[in-house]
Amino acid sequence: MTELRIDSLSKDFGTFRALDSVSLDIPNGKFVCLLGPSGCGKTTLLRLIAGLETPTDGRVYVGGADQTEVPTHKRGMGMVFQSLALFPHLDVADNIAYPLAIRGVDKATRRARAEELLELVQLPGLGSRRIHQLSGGQRQRVAIARGLSINPQVFLLDEPLSALDASLREHMQIELRQIQQRLGVTTVVVTHDQKEALTMADLVIVMKDGVIQQAGAPMELYHTPANAFVAGFIGTTNLMPCTVADGVVSVLGHAFPITEGDRIAITSGEAQLSVRPEHVLLGAPDEGLPAEVSFLRDLGESLHVLMRVGDQEITAHLAPGHGHDLVTGQTVGIRFRDGEKVVVQ
């Protein structure tokens, strides 16, 4: 059964098209990340799902039922806002139990449920605190608990972790994912951090300018990007203009034969070649595409080698123990690991 289905949803703000005919099928219980640069329409899509905006066109279905005309407060979704939107006038337990209070659940049951959820988000016993007495990470957890208090069919989160520092953020990513797996709730998380998406998601949806670029499992997007934008957005990569003809990819005047495992979406003509830095190999100048080493960055766990071929920059990440004899200004020959060339439009 398809739990959340979005059918050619569009949204115009005046003459500006924020979302252009977006269609998605999200199976029951999946964890989905909406990924894309700022302004690409992620929040807009989430708000349309929640019913906080009216679509210009298209429909939203949950469990087969058309929700498009259903007002927000009758959709029964859970949502965590970017600003968290916790209620300062209520204590933590009342915040969490607010959706239950609306539904007329009695006070004792509400308190019990709030305590249960506080345990789920690892904040046991904090129910009587005020919101301003919590740290940023604790507020985040309270907001997540509140979003889950009615066991929603669909759980929506808009950049829930963006306000946290890096280490707490990574911790919360894992925790959020574990909570979601335990409850099995269909979850849509907006983020513009690709690492966050890769950490948490079953399904990543990459958007740009209101259009879905690609939807798929994280590693599918990583290994088989649909276009140069997705290749550049998921992980780090080297993007180079190339021409493809007769089993050969020509980059900056050098021909590389196509090998087993290469993902070649364009079999002839102009295209873009994407090669991850860890798949860039260095050798003697006559062994590949000659390039000049412009910068060396040793991070201990890997050595980053920045190179130039004319105007084109190419980066290689070398494993520890490799490339220690390299010096800036030196000319090297670049090759690409067999089966790791990705040619896209």
């Binding site: 859970g78 949502m79 939107a85 006038h89």
Partner: peptide, 27 residues
């Protein structure tokens, strides 16, 4: 007043008047 507070109340099931008296007024 953070407009998301009101929207949060709406998503959680509060009707317009309920959100007004339960969230806007007390805040």
């Amino acid at each position: 007043l953070d407009p998301e507070i009101v929207e949060a109340a709406r998503v959680m099931g509060a009707s317009g008047p309920r959100a007004f008296f339960g969230v806007i007024v007390p805040n």
